[in-house]
Amino acid sequence: MSAIRIAMAAALVSVMGIAAQADEAVHKLAIQVDQNDPALMNLALNNARNVKSYYEGKGEKVAIEIVAFGPGLNMYVEATSPVKDRIAAMALESPEITFAACENTHKGMIKKAGKDVPLVSEATIVPSGVVRLMELQKEGYAYVRP
């Protein structure tokens, strides 16, 4: 094998090793909320907090995304969310926890209400909650439905 090929092979192995280490360095979790149930919403937030604390205690990084769609989108409705104060606090304290809101569901809520339905500022609108969960799983996120 020529010196150039050996060097190229070594570089490729090195890059692959770095990529594998980067993947292992961050634990990833997607949590689904699809029910308008305050107990389930709080359970999802508790799961996120507990997972974050676990990995933080081990000195490891974690990325957590809570995806709400269907009736679960009520978790993010500014006027009526039973957990909006917890979401606000968690967003400030834990930037590794993010909140995704299904645009399909939001549009349906607006149509049914006949007016805008503001969401909490911490929620990021994604085109589809189900598709977002699929994308996250493809990116290596573990999936939990409390």
Rank of each mutant, 00 (worst) to 15 (best):
118 P>Q: 04
88 A>Q: 10
115 K>P: 06
102 C>A: 06
44 A>H: 10
98 T>R: 09
80 T>W: 10
62 V>D: 09
126 V>D: 09
121 S>N: 14
72 G>H: 03
44 A>N: 14
51 V>K: 08
116 D>I: 07
81 S>Q: 07
103 E>I: 02
44 A>L: 09
72 G>Y: 01
91 A>N: 09
67 V>T: 02
48 A>Q: 13
44 A>W: 09
47 N>I: 10
58 K>H: 07
114 G>V: 08
42 N>M: 06
90 M>P: 05
71 P>Q: 08
103 E>F: 06
52 K>A: 09
49 R>D: 04
41 M>K: 02
113 A>F: 01
66 I>N: 01
95 P>D: 12
101 A>R: 03
111 K>M: 03
69 F>M: 09
91 A>K: 12
88 A>K: 13
51 V>N: 14
85 D>T: 07
73 L>C: 01
95 P>W: 08
77 V>T: 03
89 A>Q: 15
56 E>R: 09
63 A>D: 15
66 I>F: 03
102 C>W: 05
55 Y>T: 04
102 C>I: 04
78 E>V: 02
91 A>E: 08
94 S>Y: 04
106 H>G: 03
92 L>V: 14
50 N>P: 10
67 V>S: 03
53 S>H: 13
74 N>W: 01
68 A>L: 08
99 F>K: 06
70 G>M: 03
121 S>E: 15
57 G>L: 12
37 D>P: 02
58 K>V: 05
101 A>E: 06
119 L>N: 05
39 A>Q: 10
79 A>S: 15
49 R>N: 10
43 L>N: 12
123 A>N: 13
60 E>S: 12
75 M>F: 03
61 K>G: 12
82 P>I: 00
119 L>C: 05
118 P>F: 02
115 K>Y: 05
105 T>R: 00
107 K>G: 00
78 E>M: 08
122 E>T: 05
106 H>I: 02
56 E>T: 10
116 D>R: 11
126 V>N: 07
64 I>Q: 11
110 I>E: 02
59 G>Q: 15
88 A>I: 04
102 C>T: 08
88 A>P: 03
107 K>I: 00
54 Y>V: 11
82 P>K: 00
52 K>P: 00
85 D>M: 02
103 E>T: 11
120 V>K: 11
119 L>I: 09
118 P>Y: 00
115 K>A: 10
87 I>H: 10
46 N>I: 05
97 I>K: 12
101 A>S: 04
117 V>Q: 06
47 N>E: 12
81 S>C: 07
96 E>F: 04
42 N>T: 07
104 N>G: 06
59 G>T: 14
127 P>F: 09
90 M>F: 15
56 E>C: 03
96 E>I: 01
78 E>G: 05
73 L>N: 00
116 D>Y: 08
115 K>R: 11
40 L>N: 01
123 A>I: 11
89 A>K: 15
116 D>W: 08
97 I>R: 13
58 K>I: 06
123 A>G: 11
55 Y>F: 15
53 S>C: 09
55 Y>I: 06
112 K>H: 12
55 Y>M: 07
112 K>S: 14
108 G>A: 06
82 P>E: 00
50 N>T: 15
121 S>M: 13
50 N>G: 11
116 D>K: 15
119 L>F: 04
80 T>K: 14
49 R>T: 11
104 N>R: 11
106 H>L: 05
47 N>P: 13
38 P>C: 11
66 I>W: 01
50 N>Y: 13
124 T>W: 05
